[in-house]
């Protein structure tokens, strides 16, 4: 009997089978490694007075500052990062390899160093900052704008790298098809390329937002720490840790839960529309 003749009656479908343990075992270890430390937070949290602590004005202010700055940061990264990713993926300008390497620098550099670098550039005596101060009376450090800049510095690579990967994976022949239909390069980008790589852009934006939300080192160095103005949740956690570890746990949990809720909602939306 060969397989060409289909047997009459119900088809016997091959069962998918159990996933192989050489994959499952390391995966379980991976999950445990990521989740168990969070469990530590949950177990040690002072649940009885959680409600009171969470609604303290300083906590709410820090939470609001974190969410709003991370969102503005993501928007900035999209505005500048998507075109940058396009240039890296689709053009061949001199020094492109160098630029690609430079884009990854914030991933390697400790965020505190990034903060110092931003101070040296945009600080009151910085390369650019001194002119901003002298000509326009603008000082960037110690403002919410500085928080956004610090977050953008560390989060941008996540967006650029995801979007560049999506662009390189996209079938360029669709862009050629659009060109033969009379679409100029900008139209091709907005009407064809961007919709095609939208999942990559979405993934990059989510990574970018999450990274911005957790940003600490560059923020505290460049933007400082002042409640309501530049004290984001991670900074509030760090400060609380110095005196009141329980408060730090509460703040960490709040940050964790809010970011999980936002990511889950975004993901849901994403899966439904894609």
């Amino acid at each position: 009997m060969t397989g060409s003749a289909a047997p009459a009656g119900p088809v016997l479908r091959a069962r998918p089978g159990r996933p192989p343990w050489p994959l499952v075992l390391p995966a379980l270890v991976g999950v445990a490694f990521l989740v168990l430390p969070m469990l530590g937070l949950v177990v040690r949290a002072p649940w009885p007075d959680m409600g009171r602590r969470v609604t303290e004005p300083d906590v709410l202010a820090a939470l609001w500052l974190s969410l709003s700055t991370a969102t503005v940061t993501t928007a900035l990264c999209l505005v500048f990062g998507v075109p940058l990713a396009w240039l890296l993926a689709r053009t061949d300008f001199p020094g492109r390899r160098l630029v690609r390497a430079l884009v990854a620098v914030p991933l390697v550099v400790p965020p505190v160093v990034g903060g110092v670098a931003l101070l040296l550039l945009l600080g009151r005596n910085g390369l650019l900052g001194r002119y901003l101060d002298a000509w326009f009376g603008i000082t960037v450090p110690f403002t919410p704008a500085a928080v956004v800049l610090a977050q953008t510095f560390v989060a941008m690579p996540f967006l650029v790298i995801s979007v560049e990967g999506a662009l390189r994976g996209a079938d360029r022949r669709y862009e050629e098809a659009a060109a033969t239909l009379g679409a100029g390069r900008v139209t091709v980008f907005t009407r064809v390329t961007l919709p095609m790589v939208l999942p990559g852009v979405g993934a990059g934006a989510i990574l970018c937002w999450a990274r911005a939300l957790g940003e600490f080192g560059a923020t505290i160095t460049f933007a400082g720490n002042f409640p309501g103005t530049t004290q984001t949740m991670p900074l509030a956690v760090y400060m609380a840790m110095q005196r009141d570890p329980e408060a730090a746990i509460v703040l960490s949990l709040v940050l964790l839960l809010v970011s999980l809720a936002v990511l889950a909602t975004l993901r849901e939306k994403w899966v439904n529309t894609a």
Binding site: A177, T180, M196
Partner: peptide, 12 residues
């Protein structure tokens, strides 16, 4: 006007 091998219709 061009018709491509896999037609390349815009999926979105």
């Amino acid at each position: 006007g061009m018709v491509f091998q896999d037609y390349l219709l815009f999926q979105h």
